[in-house]
């Protein structure tokens, strides 16, 4: 039935402007509908459902509303530790993963550097490696025996072998190290694309006026890269706060001793799935959503992104 009719449609002369697709009133809705539907089904519905679950004790056949109990249960030391870890991790990745890629991007953009393409691809390859594989290898590299590779390397500089994954500070360093290894290349790509859109004449006229390389970098490159920097900052904040698999792989499971690698998402996973407490898991998830929203609003406000384009 439908087949002949649809072929007929395809062959039929284009409908007049009165046709549905050409109707100025409906067309915008039609074209945005797929997105709106995806948004409603895969975002709005889960969020509403999460809000609902956060007020429930979710058990098969015995789900019931328990008021704010899940939120009251939030205030415990594991939750604080998870927030602390997530925030510190995010801050550290920001400190490392914005200046460093910027510097590398400038170097890679310079004409004086040989083997440019080789370096570019080398930096980017880690981003293509699965976190599961990378995490496992990092775990083995960070072993506590003298023979583990990282201990061998620091041994060359005269340091004692360390128990990397059994110390809160070293564990955090390990996580940041892994993030740096993995995301450096991606951020370099962002900055490179930003750099390439800066017109060359500006540098030329600056050097004619006698600006040093450093001055040109600070006065031209950095300000003109601001939009890219803000973008990288924003996604890094998201990335930092939602970090989980790195920690999961490094401690071979969501089980780092003394919660040294517990992140907010890790805590959701622990409560929601490992302990079958979906209600509390939902409450943690919503608090994470709140955190991220506030952080990003502040950040966007500070950088003046709400102002109208001039």
């Amino acid at each position: 039935m439908s087949k002949p009719s649809s072929t007929a449609t395809a062959k039929a002369p284009a409908p007049r402007k009165t046709g549905f697709l050409y109707n100025q009133r409906y067309a915008p809705y039609v074209f945005t509908l797929p997105f709106v539907l995806t948004f409603l089904i895969f975002f709005t519905y889960p969020v509403i459902s999460t809000i609902q679950m956060s007020f429930q004790e979710v058990l098969p056949g015995a789900t019931k509303y328990i008021g704010f109990k899940n939120y009251e249960n939030l205030f415990n030391k594991h939750y604080y530790r998870a927030i602390y870890n997530s925030l510190i991790y995010t801050a550290l990745t920001l400190v490392v993963l914005i200046p460093l890629p910027l510097l590398f991007a400038v170097m890679l953009n310079s004409n004086k550097l040989p083997f440019k393409n080789f370096f570019r691809s080398t930096f980017f390859i880690p981003a293509l490696v699965s976190i599961v594989v990378a995490g496992t290898i990092f775990r083995l590299m960070l072993g506590q025996s003298e023979g583990a590779i990282v201990n061998q390397i620091i041994g060359l500089f005269g340091f004692e072998p360390q128990k990397w994954l059994a110390d809160a500070r070293l564990g955090m360093i390990a996580l940041v190290l892994m993030a740096t290894w993995r995301w450096l290349g991606v951020n370099i790509i962002y900055f490179l694309s930003g750099l390439q859109s800066i017109p060359h004449d500006i540098y030329e006229s600056a050097s004619i006026d006698g600006a040093t390389t450093w001055q040109r970098f600070m006065k031209i490159t950095v300000p003109l890269l601001k939009p890219v920097t803000i973008y990288v900052l924003t996604i890094s904040i998201f990335g930092g706060l939602s970090m989980f698999i790195e920690s999961f792989m490094l401690w071979s499971g969501n089980r780092s001793p003394k919660d040294m690698g517990l992140t907010m998402v890790g805590y959701i996973y622990q409560q929601g799935f490992e302990q079958n407490n979906m209600g509390l898991g939902s409450a943690i998830g919503l608090s994470l959503l709140g955190f991220t929203l506030v952080l990003n609003l502040i950040q966007l406000k500070v950088f003046g992104l709400f102002k109208k384009e001039d």
Binding site: S2, S5, S6, T9, P15, G19, F20, L21
Partner: peptide, 8 residues
């Protein structure tokens, strides 16, 4: 009209 609905 019905045919264009199908397309949509």
């Amino acid at each position: 009209m019905r045919k264009s609905w199908f397309t949509v």
